[in-house]
């Protein structure tokens, strides 16, 4: 029997603010899982701390709500111990690019085959609106005592130079588009990153839904509203590295596109490069049966609890009576 969208929903009361952009991301994840017919038990959603951290509780798959900033190491550990798991990690921009930035960079170096989604609203919501690492310099959202004194990090460019092999951006009010990106990310061989622009209706009074829609962005000639969000694929942009020789050219384009902000903000797939071996492939090169017999599946004792690992070879080497 085909799995339905309802099969991925829990009855846990959702306590996000009304109008929160997180709802769109939650729906997109559930729709992607249903579209791909991934059995709920095969998927595990890991999360960090913050509003986004509650996401797994609303999704009926295994759900692991970890520590602030540490979602990537938890998720990678599970995936490496059992590569059959479909692992999706989620977290906020403060979680992933502030306290967890070191893990973000290091995850890129590993290229573990999984997905990481950042719910990017430029503020720390659950602690009442402090500036996050993606808030632009000089911005003063309503709960900040002073304008933001830090420059913002560029998540797409950081993912690129860290080594993520799939990099995309979604918008939480374009759920179908985001769902399609999530599906591509899950199918991607390697570590996929999705930066999701997600208005916080309570604390970010600058980058609001209306702002993204461009309600204040009027074409002086036509007097029409010019939406800020546009889709990369509509412009003929193609971030897929078909051949390693294209790498530099494609990377340069990603940086260029990722710097667009203000009146034009691109969403879509910025980059995909499947020519980099995944961490699982790297492990398989030294442990030949790693994929078939990963840590989580290994038998370690017989029926009587006797260990089955044979270290006689190592001990023989240490013996002095031979």
């Amino acid at each position: 029997m085909a799995l339905k969208l309802a099969d991925y929903k829990t009855d846990v009361h959702n306590d996000w603010c009304p109008g929160c952009g997180d709802f769109g991301i939650l729906n997109a994840i559930q729709m992607a899982l249903a579209d791909m017919q991934i059995p709920p038990h095969r998927a595990t959603i890991f999360s960090g701390i913050g509003c986004s951290g509650k996401t797994p509780h609303y999704i009926k798959t295994y759900g692991i709500h970890t520590l602030h900033g540490r979602v990537l190491p938890f998720a990678q550990g599970a995936k490496l111990a059992n590569p059959e798991l479909e692992v999706i990690a989620v977290g906020g921009d403060g979680d992933g690019l502030g306290i967890g930035a070191g893990h973000f960079v290091s995850a890129g170096r590993r290229n573990v085959d999984m997905v990481y989604i950042i719910f990017n609203n430029a503020v720390y919501g659950l602690t009442k609106g402090q500036a996050s690492p993606t808030l632009k310099l000089g911005m003063k959202t309503k709960s900040l005592p002073q304008p933001n004194v830090n420059n913002s990090v560029n998540p797409v460019a950081l993912a690129l130079v860290s080594g993520f092999t799939f990099i995309a951006r979604g918008y939480s009010y374009d759920i179908r588009h985001l769902k399609d990106i999530i599906k591509r990310a899950v199918e991607h061989k390697g570590l996929a990153f999705i930066d999701v622009l997600q208005p916080c209706p309570t604390y970010n009074d600058i980058n609001t839904k209306e702002w993204f829609q461009g309600l204040d962005n009027i074409d002086p000639e036509t007097k029409r509203v010019m939406p800020r969000i546009y889709k990369l694929e509509d412009t003929g942009y193609n971030g897929v590295v078909n051949d390693p020789s294209e790498l530099n050219e494609k990377m340069a384009k990603v940086v260029e596109k990722s710097n667009e902000w203000g009146s034009k903000i691109p969403i879509g797939v910025f980059f995909q490069n499947e020519h980099v071996p995944t961490y699982q492939e790297r492990l398989s090169a030294r442990i030949q049966n790693y994929m078939e017999y990963p840590p989580a599946h290994q038998k370690i004792a017989d029926a009587n609890g006797r260990p089955i690992t044979n270290i006689e070879g190592l001990l023989d080497d240490l013996r002095v009576d031979k």
Partner: peptide
């Protein structure tokens, strides 16, 4: 811890 949750 992630590895332990997976069963190893």
């Amino acid at each position: 811890i992630g590895g332990a949750l997976a069963g190893s």
